[in-house]
Design a protein around this nucleic acid. Sequence first.
RNA 1: UCCGGCGUAGCUCAAUAGGUAGAGCGGGUGGCUGUUAACCACUAGGUUGGGGGUUCGAGUCCCUCCGCCGGAGCCA
Length: 428
Amino acid sequence: MRIIHVKDFIGEEVEIKGWLYNKRSKGKILFLIVRDGSGYIQVVGVKGESPDYIFDIYDELGLESSVIVKGIVRKEPRSIGGYELSLTGLEPVQIAVDYPIQKKEHGTAFLMEHRHLWIRSKKQRAILRIRNEVEKAIVDFFYENDFVRIDTPILTPTAAEGSTTLFSTEYFDMGKAYLAQTGQLYLEAAIFANGLVYNFGPTFRAEKSKTRRHLTEFWMVEAEEAYYDNDDNMKVQENFISYIIERVIKRCADELKILERDTNILQSISLPFPKITYDDAVELLQKDGFSTKWGEDFGGDEETAISKHFDKPVFIMDYPRKIKAFYMKEHSERPELVRCADLIAPEGYGEIIGGSQREDDYDKLLARMEEFGLAIENYRWYLDLRKYGSVVHSGFGLGIERTVAWICGIPHVREATAFPRMLYRIYP
RNA sequence: UCCGGCGUAGCUCAAUAGGUAGAGCGGGUGGCUGUUAACCACUAGGUUGGGGGUUCGAGUCCCUCCGCCGGAGCCA
């Protein structure tokens, strides 16, 4: 019997297999809060009514001991969850002694050091369940919209985007291999077979970033669409985000409540999302008192400032080509720009999607790669795609942890994954 | 890598101006028939992150190393 189903068995004796979440005793009456992953239930023992041996082992039962309890189900408004068990039997499976995480506040350093235990807590469990729902929604959205999932490689021979620092490893006697920072280039190959494709998996950045928005290992979902220009691409993105949000609101109401998330903000997210150009964004920032100059990329503070002008995610389109990746499509009217869009989440959560139309012209792409100083011989296969049936195409990548952090309303991406990998932290 | 902050009991924190290191929680002991991070009483618990220096005297001031936190750059 799982706790979530107890409400259907009022008056009957049930058996719960779980862990001791909390306990209190008041002389001749004792309260055990037991959790089993599906919920929490209070179990009450009364001297004279419950077996005596339970009162003998009560003191031994440390928090988080694994226990199998039996009791009669009662409706009880005073109890957590509204139902309660009158204790008839208790079998300790393994007695936990001195569980490190107490029913009080702890610092993040201590909690991260005990992350393997911390994930048992209510809030952490709620976050990870929302992540589970987000991941399911992602897969469903693409399946329903005829995208084919292509699992792109994690070991790659070269840096895809050139600029960022990558983790490397020895690859037999073939020199170094790198942990993928994106599967995009491989997805571009796959659209010529399937039209619409996506991937979903871990990506790695060896950047020494130390902020609330960065992990060294994070999950990303990337989509790539043949015959879609950047406007078509943005439509997919807003439908995608909206689909995820709706799903979480519908299926994770309890979890959002545990996190004390203000769901009004999430609920008000409707289509279409506002779209501004990079030019507009610079102007907006200058009006806000930033010293941002045209041609510079935006920092975290600037993204936050822009997002505060809107109550929905906002697209910033058409950045200067100099601050964007080599594969982005040159703007047809203004060659100093590229056809791209970043999606900035509301409430200061920063960029959650980076997307663009890709350069589909062989000569322009080659010139761009040379300009970026890329080793062309590593990209022969990628250039081939512009020789054999090249088409207009676009794609985007969404960071899972940032999205989950935003939906949950938590301040740091490290809590949006079970075992975060960060600069200076790889334990546990 | 750079800038800033922090490091005191198992945990969260306090210690006026440089002058005998404390509290709450947790642990232990006892009490309590409806608790909600239960409560009450008693109790144990410390090389103040490491090293060096200034001083009659350093948790407090200085130097250095280590660890952690936040931010920048870069990005999702």
